[in-house]
Nucleic acid binder design. Structure first.
Lengths: 272, 272
DNA sequence: CGTTCAGTTGAGGCGGATCAACGGACGTGG
DNA sequence: CCACGTCCGTTGATCCGCCTCAACTGAACG
């Protein structure tokens, strides 16, 4: 059904590495105590190439995943077969949490670029939580954070216009890149317009048009996947594009002329 | 902004009761072991009247809440001041989880009817989890379940038509009532059209019209808040109403509904 | 150099929002 | 008890934002 060639689940074991508990906690932005820092538990890394699937829907749940490098997407498929992108995990993000409840993953995760992912066996993780109360609290905290993220998505999908969604998407990406020490102004999108649209509840055409509109307005500069944010504040406070006549006078004039020529003026211009 | 008189947070201590750990677990549909069943920890009940607020945004987080009886709503307010209803907790549902991460509630909860709610101090809960591993696993499971619920909401808001959303809303309510031993066919809505609309990302008018349309099609019977589900299967498989001009002729509508129930996939979603 | 997929752009239509009017339920106070 | 205001729900008319369909360009790749 998905035309993209997704290599079936299978690790790339080149560059096999292991990370300490402290390194994992640092990635997850969990403050560590001395006891945790000294712990000698190691967590395995696994490499995936772009297009490979990390886990699929229905696959038995064993491990949580923490992104060490690279970009991914997580996808849920509803009862009618609609595909919906839920998140774009990147460095420091956790995924696989939806597998805890039913002991099977409810979503699938796919690498958008080559990735380095740390496997965190859930059993081992909670066992460590028992020994280190502050770690346990952090685990709950991370799960709660994920829940809040989803709630924000619901709020966005429920009330924002297409332009506001795209603007927030760019702002969020920018802030995440900044936190990781990369440029929050210039970056490359790792996903297609279609994937952005799925994430935001829009069509790929609307995403493309909105980016073009931002470009024309001077808020950003776009060239394919390359984004350069020119006016971060405007993006952050944007709710709805200003009326189109302020955007491009030529096209309005053309449209108005066409409408006049047509005799029977379409209602939207008759009102104005 | 909200015209309704919401009495400020303040308990009604009439009918003060306490529940055992086992009773709380049963409510949450957590399987209990003998050790847990015999535990003597007690959890306090609190009563709220319709319209009262259980917790507000920004209020320090201490406790999780489990609904023993009554109906509530949880509301989030985004950066632009948009109000969004996130859930309608009822008997056996947990809320307040979004407070764990930042030690403050990110949403507010309001009683839609008189309610009896159990306070579960989070510290006490996790401490019990330490003593009873299977309980701890269940706590993680409940939080994961909430996350999956939100993911389903995102998927719904991202891809379903207005009619499909309302249909799913009714189906979900029906199934929840059935699980609680109430009638899944006949029940009263506890919320206004406006609140349903906020929850589903629609306007109250669209909700009202859609319910009327279902009524005309014979899928349900509606009278104000009273719902009677006539054709559960059609609701469950509905994706999009037949075109309005065919809807005027009731017979054609019925035929279309039958086709939908038969599993014939409408073209617009089958491709995706 | 063809093929395929990503992205852009245009034209047009539809679904749902918006604006508006109305009836009914409910509570409140005369 | 009824008069009145308020909120809830329904329904109609209109508008417009986004989807849909379509054509085209350019990039990546064998």
């Amino acid at each position: 059904m998905d035309p993209r060639p997704i290599t079936d689940t299978g690790w790339q074991r080149t560059g096999k590495l292991w990370s300490s508990l402290k390194e994992v906690c640092d990635l997850l932005r969990i403050p560590v105590t001395a006891a945790v820092a000294d712990h000698d538990t190691l967590f395995q890394h696994v490499q995936f190439k772009a297009g490979q699937r990390i886990h699929t829907i229905g696959q038995p749940f064993d491990v949580l995943y923490v992104v060490n490098s690279g970009f991914l997407k997580t996808v849920m498929i509803d009862v009618f077969g609609n595909e919906q992108i839920l998140s774009f995990p990147m460095k420091g993000d956790l995924f696989g949490v939806d597998g805890i409840h039913g002991r099977r993953y409810e979503s699938e995760a796919v690498a958008l670029t080559n990735c380095d992912v740390i496997l965190v066996p859930f059993k081992k993780f909670t066992a460590l939580g028992k020994a280190h109360p502050e770690l346990e609290a952090a685990i709950y905290g991370v799960m709660s954070r994920e829940l809040i993220r989803e709630q924000s998505m619901v709020t966005m999908l429920g009330s924002l216009s297409a332009e506001a969604r795209v603007a927030r998407f760019l702002v969020n990406l920018s802030e995440r890149f900044s936190e990781l020490g990369y440029s929050g102004k210039q970056f490359n999108l790792r996903m297609t317009r279609h994937e952005i649209g799925s994430y935001l509840g829009l069509t790929l055409e609307t995403v493309s048009r909105t980016l073009s509109a931002f470009n024309e307005m001077g808020l950003i500069s776009v060239d394919q996947r390359a984004i350069d944010i020119k006016d971060f504040n405007a993006l952050k406070t944007l709710r709805r594009l200003p009326p189109s006549r302020t955007r491009d006078k030529q096209k309005l004039a053309k449209a108005a002329a066409a409408a006049a020529a047509a005799g029977a003026a379409p209602q939207q211009f008759a009102a104005a």
